[in-house]
């Protein structure tokens, strides 16, 4: 399937992307292109590339085509492909690496997932535990789509009626994890 032009990505602006993809390629090197992953994936219907096709492009080193697709961002980590892969490859984990690679680029066609995960993790960093209402509020605000919160309004009202989400959830986790996050970032930049 042809990839949309508006998602084309300029690799010259991301020098380390090629080497990161080389690591991911090593994880799936023994792939025999049998397509069991595609046949096992519950989200395949919504993907532009089938999982098998995406792994082929990874093996060919076609980083730009892989990152321009939505396929890896549609993985819901159900681990069915990992379970069934006849070569025993860690496919879900390799997709996690692709998500990490994409997250460092803030790719526009993956904006919703990017903002969702970043706000989630930022909430953990600040409080040690997730404050659901805070991070969903920031996520909605940054998506800048006035209609988006409406899709969750019904659920939000029902949650609020039950006192499940408040604006001030106590954090009993002993404060934030800023030092730990800083240390992890330092270690990842070093390697």
């Amino acid at each position: 399937m042809a990839l949309a032009e508006d998602t084309a990505i300029d690799l010259s602006s991301m020098p380390e992307a090629a080497s990161a993809l080389a690591d991911i390629r090593a994880m799936v090197q023994p792939c025999i292109q049998c397509g069991t992953c595609t046949g096992s994936c519950p989200n395949e219907f919504a993907m532009d590339l089938t999982p098998r096709h995406m792994w082929r492009l990874v093996l060919l080193g076609r980083t730009e085509d892989v990152l321009a697709s939505r396929t890896f961002s549609l993985c819901s980590a159900c681990y069915m492909c990992t379970l069934r892969c006849p070569r025993g490859l860690p496919l879900t984990e390799a997709i996690g690496r692709l998500k990490q690679l994409a997250a460092r680029r803030h790719l526009s066609h993956l904006r919703s997932g990017d903002l969702f995960y970043r706000n989630f993790i930022a909430s953990v960093r600040r409080h040690g535990r997730v404050r659901e209402m805070e991070f969903m509020g920031l996520y909605f605000a940054q998506m800048m789509n006035p209609w988006l919160p409406l899709r969750y309004a019904d659920m939000g009202m029902r949650l609020m009626r039950r006192g499940k989400v408040t604006l001030q959830l106590p954090s009993r986790g002993g404060g934030g994890l800023n030092r730990l996050f800083e240390k992890v970032a330092e270690m990842e930049n070093r390697s």
């Binding site: 990490q100 993790i121 953990v124 002993g174 994890l177 996050f181 990842e188």
Partner: peptide, 25 residues
């Protein structure tokens, strides 16, 4: 005592090391 977030599905989308360090804590 003093448990913190395990990283949920968010850590894996952001950082490989964080995916392990948050639960390991």
């Amino acid at each position: 005592e003093g448990w913190t977030c395990c990283g949920a599905s968010a850590a894996e989308a952001v950082s490989e090391l964080l995916t392990l360090v948050l639960p390991a804590r």
